[in-house]
Each structure stands twice: as C-alpha cells, then as structure tokens.
Amino acid sequence: MTAVSTRTPAVAAAGTGTSVPGELRVVAMVWERELIRYTRTRTRIVSGFAQPVLFLLVLGYGMSGLVGTTGGFTFRQFVYPGVVAMSVVMTAMFSAMSIVWDREFGFLREMLVAPVSRASLVLGKTAGGATVAAAQGTIMLVLAPLVGIRLTPLLVVEVIGIELLMAVAMTTFGVFVASRIQRMESFQVVMQMLLMPMLFLSGALFPLNGLPAWLAVVTRLNPLTYAVAPLRQVVFSAQDMSAAARARFPTNVTILGHTLPIWWELAVVAVFALVFFVLAHRGLSRTE
C-alpha cells in the first residue's frame, strides 16, 4: 500500500488545547475573522458611514437654523462628536450581533464545540468588534474639517482611545444580547428597541443640560452617556470656543449638581464593559 510512504506520523490529537499561548492564538484568530469579514462586506462599511452622515446632515444642518450659533459655535459642531460615537456604537453592536448569524448559519457551533475556553471566544469577538468599530469611527474623522472641527494629532489619538473603550463596552453588551437571542427576526427588534433609545438618550444628539427631570434621570442611567461625554470633551478641548459656547454646550455629565471628571466617566464605561463581558461569557456557556 503506497499510503505508508506518504502518511504523516500521527500527531498528538490537539497539542495545545488549554495552554495560554493556545488560547491567545484563539483570541487572535477570532479577532482576525472579524476583520476579514468586515473588510469583505463593503456594504457594511458604506452603510456604517452613510447612516451617521445622514444624522449629521439632518441634525447638523436642519437643526442649526433652529438652535442658532452661540459665540460662533454651531449645533453642527456640537453634534459631530455624538455622530462619531453613534457610528462606533452601531458598528460595534452590529459586529457583536453577528453571533446571531453565526448561530443561524451554524458557525457558532464550530466555535462552541472546540476544546477552548469560551472566554477566549468572547475576548476575540470583543477585540474584533472593537477594532472594527473604532476603525469605522475613525473614518468619520474625515468629515471634521467640513463641519468646522479642528483635528490635532493628539486629539486623533485621544479619540481613537475613547472609541476603543466605547466599542469594547458595546461589543460585550452586544454579545450578551446576542447570546440570548435564538432567532434572526429578533435581531431587528433588539436593534430598534434597545440600540436606538440608548443612542437617542445618551446626549449624543442633544445637550444634557436643561432637560426635564425624568429625561435627565434616564440619560444618567444610560451607560452610553458616559461614553459619549468624554469623546465630546476631548474634541471640544481642542477647539477655540468662547466661554459662552462652553456654557451653552457643556460636555461633562452632571449628577445631582456634581460634575463627573472624565476619568470617572471612562471608569463607568469600563465597569459596564467588564460586567457585560462576564454576562456574555455566561450567555455563551449554556449547553443543551
């Protein structure tokens, strides 16, 4: 039998199953797959860009007339960081929710039966979603000059950093939600009933000061609020704004009259990410 000469010696069934390097390779591989899929679906990149642009046009130009300018600062400039945040959040959520597709088309099974830690899978998915979302948010920066926002190298670095944290939080949240969804039809419902309200009530599209009490409470309970505020703050701090404009469009979140420092806001987002990482891990660990 000729097979004897060509046959490879039997390899140990699965060499590095539980080792740390093995798990890290899994994280990297899941991450890579996320990037491959993202770059292969042009429509996703385009719609991830077009939708926020639409908001920027509608709100930035439509509302500008209504709101007017304050000390030379327009509503368009105000809403711009919010729209960037919006594109990050939607891309992250969409990427995480692709688990619902993976379930439908079976690939989730291929991942779940493998002798690897579920934490590695969630970690890879989170890293992938965050990378893709931050990239999408960064593409939005090309619009800055058109809106009248000045970019500096430091600002770009800061924005990308905050985008990453925001995206990690939204991806873990999205993976958790997806792990609870069994059917594709539920996906649209979730996007509309969960994501849109979260975005609208995060201060991304309107200032958080001077809201009715109930709305103020709701926005403060919304974790996204704490992700949008830092982004706007770093963007605004790089602009020449009059005192009047800063007073008109405050950036930090205030709770009961206290103004939260940016680090606190970021910490809230980090805790949110951590909590949902644990929940997402649990969600994916259930077996029949």
């Binding site: 591989m29 088309f105 099974r109 493998a114």
Partner: peptide, 29 residues
Amino acid sequence: FQEQTLDDQLTAEENLRFHAVLYGVPHDR
C-alpha cells in the same frame, strides 16, 4: 454536523486555519 457549520464568507483555507487554531494544531503542522 448534520447542518452545515462553515463560514461561507471565508475561504476554504481560512475556515481550516480557524479550525486548526481552535484545536491547537501546532504552528508548524
């Protein structure tokens, strides 16, 4: 499985590489 579990947005090679990593096939193998 009875149902298909490939990622059809990836190439055959990419699907296999993904699997190799999941099952800890040594790098050089």
